[in-house]
């Protein structure tokens, strides 16, 4: 694995916190993309929840509407 550059220095909290915001957005995007693909491949919400470390209900509540909309377009 390639070496990642160092994380923003803690003495620059502004840059570090902006990176946290950007990572949260990226994580949400990756989650929606991956869960949509999982549903396409026939995964159940229980399996998706298990992979994400959350309950099936939580996974469904969070992403089912978005997944349905994406599959419908």
């Amino acid at each position: 694995m390639a070496d990642l550059p160092p994380l923003p220095a803690p003495d620059d909290p502004e840059a570090a916190l902006a990176a946290v915001v950007a990572l949260r957005r990226l994580a949400a995007r990756l989650e929606a993309d991956a869960v949509t693909e999982a549903v396409e491949q026939g995964w159940t919400w229980a399996q998706i929840g298990e992979a994400l470390g959350i309950s099936a209900q939580a996974a469904h509540k969070k992403l089912a509407t978005e997944v349905r909309a994406r599959r419908g377009r």
Binding site: P5, L7, A18, A22, L23, L26
Partner: peptide, 14 residues
């Protein structure tokens, strides 16, 4: 660009 730059700072090119 602000979000992309923040990720680039972590070595993540989106």
């Amino acid at each position: 660009a602000v979000h992309a730059d923040a990720l680039a700072g972590l070595g993540l090119e989106t």
